[in-house]
Nucleic acid binder design. Structure first.
Length: 440
RNA sequence: GUGGUAGUAGCUCAGUUGGUUAGAGCACCGGAUUGUGAUUCCGGGGGUCGCCGGUUCGAGUCCGGUUUAUCACCCCA
């Protein structure tokens, strides 16, 4: 016999696993709706170009892509954002602003799997488009925090690191670096903690030359900042033009608005200013944020930020946007590790226990009746001793057993047994539905 | 794509310096038990010891390759 296995990085969900999956989706949906976001979805398969346009041709090595029978270069989606950008762009003029959309869907990445990282995973995507100010970030970060709280996680379990690519641009510009250099420097900042010092300096030399050591000191100082006041002071120590000063003032005012808003929502305890978050390559243009477990055992739970240029790049109008994604893999691992993954028991309304063949037929007609009325009903397919049937009834998680024995049917009743407290009572069979409705 | 570690029943694992027919617990199925539940007792099914090759009289055990998992690196949208 041939033996088939799942492909690497793809999961199977047995009922008990699927119950956990469903739980995660339910909380995600609940919270997104509380924040008045609307659910949508895009195609799972897209043209390869959609993704290479957004992320560059190098991305292809990490895609599940192939040529379809019509000779088209296609790819399973590695993320939802490009599809979203296209969808929004197509109807940009007709959509009410702000556009608040969310989606729960499978994404595919051709990477080697490791802890918290698979080739097929499900991600919650939440995006708010059409609002340029920090009130959009307030909504999204609040939603992110509330969704994690919705799983029973607490301030002890997770926090959100908040950073700002704009601030980095302003800072590095005042130090005299141009846009290209800044991109390179941020690429290094992204790896700051993981790289040994000599290697950092070597990489900084590529953009800063002889000033690499000086630049490194400046970056180190900047990374230590953890409040708006500290940021303001840091900039006060550097010479800059009036224009740059005005930009900085505006940006610091955005920061204050964002932090005040999150504070008003009671979320200050979840937020940590941490400028080391710059989020890799990225099309991010402003605030960026990532959620982590506080013990630091897992990779990021969620990440996102502002991407004001993307919709236009994907062929749409100028459209400011903020979004974040949260995957089911790391979240599931964290919930299990913290004991926040509930044990799910399938609950049934009735389990039918019946005697011989004649009683079984009578029972079956009532099974049909009860099911049609909306109750969940189970029974043993094979004839079995009463004792076995009760054992099965208990194991099924049903609230009640309905007993169809010869004694009951002769009297025109059905015996109802409460499986939790073991109490029993007779119900008239000719008014079974009415009697059941009063009880259940 | 690169490297470390591992792979024995559905699950968790045992298996002696290489030696008879590869075991246990849990789970599952059946019986004791055709009128009442988690206990108990008895029984049963289930294994290409990941796969291929090598050494050997003999390999679950030693060697090589391969594959899968896992961890780290690269990357992380």
């Amino acid at each position: 016999m041939a033996s088939f296995k799942t492909l690497p990085g793809f999961r199977e969900f047995y009922p008990e696993d699927y119950a956990q999956r469903k739980h995660i989706f339910q909380i995600w949906r609940q919270v997104a709706r509380r924040f008045a976001f609307q659910e949508f979805d895009g195609p799972v398969l897209e043209s390869l170009e959609l993704f290479t346009t957004k992320s560059g041709p190098e991305i292809e090595s990490q895609l599940f892509c192939f040529e379809d029978k019509g000779g088209r270069q296609v790819s399973l989606r590695p993320e939802l954002t490009p599809s979203l950008a296209r969808m929004v762009a197509a109807r940009a003029n007709g959509l009410k602003r702000p556009i608040k959309w969310f989606s729960i869907g499978d994404n595919f990445r051709y990477e080697r799997q490791q802890k918290g990282r698979l080739r097929c995973f499900t991600q919650l995507n939440v995006d708010l488009l059409g609002e340029a100010g920090p009130s959009a970030e307030i909504e999204l970060i609040a939603l992110l925090v509330q969704s994690l709280l919705g799983f029973g996680l607490t301030e002890e379990d997770f926090y959100v690191r908040l950073s700002d690519r704009n601030l980095w641009m302003l800072y590095l510009a005042t130090l005299g670096y141009d846009e290209d250099a800044i991109g390179g420097i941020l690429g290094v900042v992204d790896k700051w903690e993981r790289m040994p010092e000599e290697k950092l300096i070597a990489q900084l030399q590529e953009v800063a030359g002889e000033k690499a050591a000086e630049l490194k000191a400046s970056v180190d100082a900047f990374l230590k900042l953890d409040s708006v006041d500290a940021i303001r002071e840091c900039f006060a120590g550097v010479e800059s033009s009036d224009e740059a000063k005005a930009e900085l003032d505006a940006r610091l005012s955005d920061w204050q608005t964002l932090l005040d808003g999150l504070g008003a929502m009671g979320l200050t305890g979840f937020i940590k200013i941490d400028l080391s978050i710059v989020r890799g390559l990225a099309y991010y243009t402003g605030f960026v944020f990532e959620a982590f477990d506080k013990k630091g055992e897992f990779r990021a739970l969620a990440g996102g930020g502002r991407y004001d240029a993307l919709v236009k790049k994907m062929g749409g109008p100028d459209m400011p946007a903020v979004g974040f994604g949260m995957g089911d893999v790391v979240l599931g691992e964290l919930l299990k590790a913290r004991g926040k993954m509930p044990q799910f028991v399938e609950s049934l309304d009735f389990f039918i226990v019946s005697g011989g063949d004649a009683e079984k037929l009578t029972a079956l007609s009532d099974v049909a009746l009860l099911r049609q009325a909306g109750y969940s009903v189970e029974y043993q397919l094979k004839p079995q001793a009463f004792g076995k049937q009760f054992k099965a009834a208990t194991g099924s998680g049903a609230r009640f057993a309905l007993i169809y024995g010869s004694e009951e049917l002769e009297k025109g009743v059905v015996k109802l047994r409460n499986l939790a407290d073991r109490s029993e009572q007779d119900l008239p069979r000719d008014r079974l539905l009415e009697a059941v409705r009063e009880l259940v």
